[in-house]
Design a protein around this nucleic acid. Sequence first.
DNA 1: CCGGATCCCTTGCGATACTG
DNA 2: CAGTATCGCAAGGGATCCGG
Lengths: 118, 118
Amino acid sequence: MACIVKNFEIDHQKGIKAVRDSMDVLNGKWKISIISSICHYNTRRFSDILNDVVGISNRMLSKELKELEINKVVRRTILDTRPVTVQYELTKHGLTLKTIINNLVEWGVAHRKIIIGK
Amino acid sequence: MACIVKNFEIDHQKGIKAVRDSMDVLNGKWKISIISSICHYNTRRFSDILNDVVGISNRMLSKELKELEINKVVRRTILDTRPVTVQYELTKHGLTLKTIINNLVEWGVAHRKIIIGK
DNA sequence: CCGGATCCCTTGCGATACTG
DNA sequence: CAGTATCGCAAGGGATCCGG
């Protein structure tokens, strides 16, 4: 009985760590918006994302995209056009975030209703 | 046709804003871990959460819980024991985060496998 | 036991300007 | 077009101590 409780607790700790791992990747002011933008269009260019995500600067966009690329959420492709354009798309791994994003959208809407009072 | 495209874009912008609303509530180093802890036990005391969320200081826990209470994610109850103990539980609204948290746990586990290489 | 108050350091992030 | 470099502030968050 104590053993069951103990395993229960261990799993809970694992869960908390796993959530933190996720949040480390998704944290910051812009990440999820960027992912949401790319996800919506399947493939999206730098300047297009810059327009989608209102308020972000090119410096930030560049930095965030680089981190997402390192975390294998996003794939970067340079197209040899003149001038150069760069394309971003979600990796297979990145695509698995779609469910989470949809849930976050739903929750955000519900939350606004509750807080602002409809 | 152009109209359809336009509505499509508008909805996308709404989606991005909704995600941001969610993240504003959930952002920071600790929030989701705290919610995860309370959610797991249904009802949890201050000092217990302090133990669950490894690394957090009482100052931070206090601050984060207060914000979550303001955002109606968490309900706070003072028990008249000696010395005083305080109990936290998720509101109905807070409970709707359960799905998101479970998804984040799954994704975090998958992510670690991909990045660390199993 | 549950916090609040203070101090201080680190980080995130914005603004701006510049390259291939 | 897609970034990089530099600067600088404000927020985030840790450590410690105090009080009901």
